[in-house]
């Protein structure tokens, strides 16, 4: 799958389970500039719902897309502010 946005950084949280995908995503987002997109690669199936919920409840981030790719779940999060 090729994303239609520029990815600034990729966070690999494969093998990590709740709450790590969300917590690590938040930490990685903190290091980005506004407008940059973080790709999160996870194997935790709960990350689909959790990252969606986190992005909806958090200011300054937007979940652009979520892709299930075999055993891997990819999330694209933009830092908006």
């Amino acid at each position: 799958m090729s994303a239609e946005f520029d990815i600034s950084q990729t966070l690999d949280v494969k093998g990590a389970s709740c709450p790590m995908p969300v917590v690590k995503t938040k930490q990685a987002i903190d290091d980005l500039e506004a407008g940059e997109v973080l790709e999160v690669v996870a194997t935790d199936s709960g990350s689909m719902s959790d990252l969606d919920g986190w992005a909806a409840g958090t200011d300054g981030v937007e979940l652009l897309d979520q892709v299930e790719d075999g055993d891997v779940y990819k999330h694209y999060v933009e830092k908006t502010a």
């Binding site: 709740c18 709450p19 969300v22 917590v23 995503t25 938040k26 930490q27 958090t58």
Partner: peptide
């Protein structure tokens, strides 16, 4: 601990 660290990720 899980709820606290996740809530902190929400700010």
């Amino acid at each position: 601990l899980i709820l606290a660290s996740t809530a902190a990720a929400f700010g």
